[in-house]
Design a protein around this nucleic acid. Structure first.
Lengths: 192, 192
DNA sequence: GTTTTCTCCTACAGGGAGTAGGGTGGGGGC
DNA sequence: GCCCCCACCCTACTCCCTGTAGGAGAAAAC
């Protein structure tokens, strides 16, 4: 009986592929075991439990997303960088729906402190600095940016926009235009 | 053995309460059966399957949310109405996290065509008309509004904003200010 | 009072999460 | 080149959840 040579990383990668092909909820220890021709119990040597497996997929996706964002915004600034960053997110969400769904789960503490998370945050801040906010406003802008991108992609993925005209592409452009406008004319005084 | 006098509505309401108390994933036919002192199989007379039960909670929440929004925006317009509508959503999400989670699921076809859904859409459009968009831009504004509100609340609920200073309350105000600004200066020409 | 109609029941099949403990084969020590 | 050990994968089980089939009994219809 040939060994499967499983490792934690291999199992997590397979889980991510499975999620992209059959949906996030299809991530099942049983399904992965079948895929590797192995008993379910064997996977528990490599993965603590299902929850930590999902956390692993989350972190994997975060790293991949950060790499794509880095490439996308390289050499750009201001509005161009904003659009590149947002489009990188949208492309990733469409190409890897299962991985994207994993990103919607609350991040595990270890993920929050991971290199991937730090990288993505740094890239986002670098992009936003092109808009020259007061330092205290950067957080709010970051949150608005994240909310808008994630919110739009979530509604788009769930079909809440319907498949009616006009296309969501136009709405997406409008949303990014709106963010650019808002970021450029961000209120500078401390009203709350 | 006393009858439990179950109906579809009673089961759905209990599921919603359960979700608010113990989380959306705690909605389980078994748990509901225990709650009613009844066998699991008995519930299938009132609910087709688990999925349709979740759809029921979705529609219930949609109706409750629409009622709250209606009260909130009554007599207001423009920026005041926008803030009232958004705050109604946020208050609802915080007070009923389980019901809110149910709203994040893709809506069933029957829910899309439900009275509750129509009501909420009508209220949203009524609020947005205060900003006097070109008719063709209303869709895009609606989508941006939904994306921002849902996205913000999702990130807030999942703890993505951390519990750091400054508080999310300030970020929320900023986000609503941004929406108001954007809605008032919405581009009127047809650039795409 | 009889009949009909629900409501709820027992019983079962199927499948996933997770644990306990045992056998084995391949790489490291020598 | 041989042996030993441990990492890897196994069997066997428990528990919980979903969903189906068919039966009993109480309430309502007549």
């Amino acid at each position: 009986m040939a060994r499967a040579n499983l490792t934690s990383a291999v199992v997590i990668a397979a889980a991510a592929d499975l999620a992209d092909r059959e949906g996030f909820d299809a991530i099942t220890l049983s399904a992965l075991a079948r895929r590797f021709g192995v008993q379910t119990a064997s996977l528990y040597s490599h993965v603590r439990d299902r929850s930590s497996l999902l956390d692993g997929v989350h972190e994997l996706a975060l790293g991949e997303l950060a790499d794509r964002v880095a490439i996308a915004i390289g050499g750009r600034s201001g509005r161009d960088a904003l659009i590149a960053l947002a489009d990188a997110h949208r492309d990733y969400a469409r190409q890897f729906p299962g991985r994207w769904a994993a990103l919607q789960r609350p991040a595990a503490p270890s993920t929050v402190n991971s290199e991937a998370a730090g990288h993505l945050v740094a890239l986002t801040l670098a992009m936003l600095r092109g808009y020259q906010f007061p330092e205290t406003e950067l957080v709010h802008a970051t949150r608005l940016l994240g909310a808008t991108i994630n919110g739009f992609l979530a509604l788009e993925a769930s079909g809440s926009f319907g498949h009616r005209e006009p296309t969501t592409d136009v709405s997406w452009r409008r949303a990014l235009d709106a963010l650019d406008t808002v970021f450029r004319s961000w209120p500078t005084d401390g009203k709350s």
